[in-house]
């Protein structure tokens, strides 16, 4: 449903992409988006979080 990343060069595609300046901001955006979208935050462990609806 959404992608939150620190590395904009690594992501592309159809889902909305949010670029964060640092890890704190990334976590905050991920938390807010997951609550708004009622999805779950998954960590790809490469500086990118994705939000998935299960």
């Amino acid at each position: 449903m959404a992608v939150i990343t620190l590395n904009p060069e690594m992501v592309a595609g159809g889902a909305p992409i949010f670029i964060a300046r640092n890890e704190e901001e990334q976590k905050r955006i991920a938390l807010i988006l997951s609550r708004v979208l009622k999805g779950m935050v998954h960590d790809l462990e490469n500086g990118t979080y994705i939000i998935v609806k299960h």
Binding site: K27, A30, L31, S34, M40, V41, H42, D43, E45, Y49, I50
Partner: peptide
């Protein structure tokens, strides 16, 4: 294991947020 929640050796799910 990183972001993967495990029960012994069994994979349960990927949890993204460190607070969670």
């Amino acid at each position: 294991q990183g972001s993967l929640l495990m029960v012994d050796k069994i994979f349960i799910m990927n949890v993204g947020l460190p607070e969670m």
